[in-house]
Amino acid sequence: MSVTQRNLWRQAIRLLVLGLCTTAMVAPLVFMIIGSLKPDAAVLTEAGTLAAIFPNEVSLQNYTDAARRVPFGRFLFNSALINLAIVVLGLAVNALAGYALARLDLPGKKIALALVMAVLVIPFEAIAIPLFYQLSAIGLRDSYLVQIVPFIANPLSIYLFYSFFLNLPRELEEAARLDGAGTWRTFITIIVPNAKPVFAAVTIVSFLFSWGAYLWPLLMTTRAAVRPLPLAIASFYTLPPRQWGDILAFGVMMVAPLLVIFIVFQRWFVTGVANSGMKG
């Protein structure tokens, strides 16, 4: 075989593997979207046949059914509100802490930093029970607050901000100080505009971690009025009668807004995650 022939073969095999991987990764997604368009009974009975991908009849009936059976809009609103609050408040609180730890004359700085690093190792599942106990005792069950406030201060976010600010050039602050700006003004007008990459990374990473939350709302909420989407899909799945078309339609509706955001900002998602990996 000549060299060009070998390269051609190699390229062909590579494309074949890429095609197989893509099929495996995308199949569940396609299956979900197609299934959501089919009559309820057909979803399960045709799941193992080609009709799972090429349906005989399609309609949006499942979408209207799902929206009729559960308050989907409410769940969407709950998820949006909870995660927006966690991310936005988290950015403010954790960026300030990361900056103070990295650059300011903070009393007890070493202890504070050690605390952040120690807390980073504690998995949420290990503290969920006493936290439940603590917050139920002050009557916070079934509220938005209980799903937001405990997750604003985040050791990983603080650490990401801290390590970014540590490497920022000192000249930035010195110039601001010569102009007579105080610490807060320096932070807001000089530091924040120069820290866009870390803000983007923390936004994406903290959102990805908080938006799938299941255990905590499962423990803390009993009313649909404050439940977020992941818990809602899990309980919709157990709601009789089990209509698979409706369940998949619910699934498509719940990821659709996020998929749009993801596709528009996919570069930010990818660099955000990659950055957290390189730093962590």
């Binding site: 893509t22 995308v26 569940p28 699934g251 990818v270």
Partner: peptide
Amino acid sequence: RTLFFMPVIFPIALVSVVWILI
């Protein structure tokens, strides 16, 4: 890359329900 990364933005609760069906 976008396609392979997509499942990451799916909440695990939804992923679990879809895979129950699979």
